Simulated scan of single mutants.
Amino acid sequence: MTSRMLYLFASAAPPAFELEHVIERAQAEGWEVCLGLTPTAARWLDESLDHLATLTGHPVRSEYKLPGEPDVWPQADVMLFAPATFNSLNSWALGITSTFVVGVVAEGIGKGVPTVTMPCVNAAYAKHRQLDRSITELREQGVTVLYGEGGFTPNPPGSGAPKGYPWEAALTAVRHLVARA
Results as ranks from 00 to 15, higher is better:
V105G: 00
M1I: 09
A41T: 07
T136N: 13
T115G: 04
P154M: 04
V116D: 10
T99H: 04
E69F: 03
G108E: 06
L171G: 01
T97L: 10
G151N: 06
H51A: 12
L55N: 08
T2A: 12
L55G: 06
L49I: 15
V113C: 01
R180W: 00
M118S: 00
F100H: 15
P70T: 05
G158Q: 08
R139C: 11
A126M: 07
S48N: 08
A76Y: 00
V33R: 06
K163E: 15
V121H: 09
F81D: 05
W92C: 07
V105H: 04
C120L: 04
S3H: 13
S159D: 11
A181M: 10
G30K: 00
A12R: 06
D132G: 15
H128S: 08
P67M: 03
A28Q: 13
Q27R: 11
N87V: 09
C34I: 02
R129I: 11
H21R: 15
A76I: 02
V145P: 00
A26W: 02
E149S: 13
K65F: 10
G112P: 02
G142N: 02
L37E: 10
Q75N: 10
H58T: 01
R4K: 15
T85P: 00
E18H: 14
R4C: 01
V101P: 08
M5C: 09
E20D: 15
E24F: 04
G68I: 12
G142D: 00
E24G: 04
E137Q: 14
Q141I: 03
L19A: 10
P119R: 09
V178C: 02
P39G: 05
F152I: 08
Y64H: 12
A26M: 01
E32C: 08
P156L: 13
M118T: 02
I135F: 10
P70N: 00
L177P: 07
D46L: 09
P156G: 09
L45K: 09
A42N: 05
M79N: 12
E69K: 00
F152E: 07
R129V: 14
L19I: 14
R61S: 11
A28G: 11
L171Y: 03
E137S: 14
T40V: 13
R43L: 09
T153P: 04
L177E: 15
A169L: 05
G110V: 06
L45Q: 08
D50K: 11
G110W: 06
L177S: 15
V101R: 05
G57V: 05
R133G: 09
G103N: 02
A76P: 15
P157I: 12
E20P: 04
Y7R: 12
P156I: 07
G103M: 05
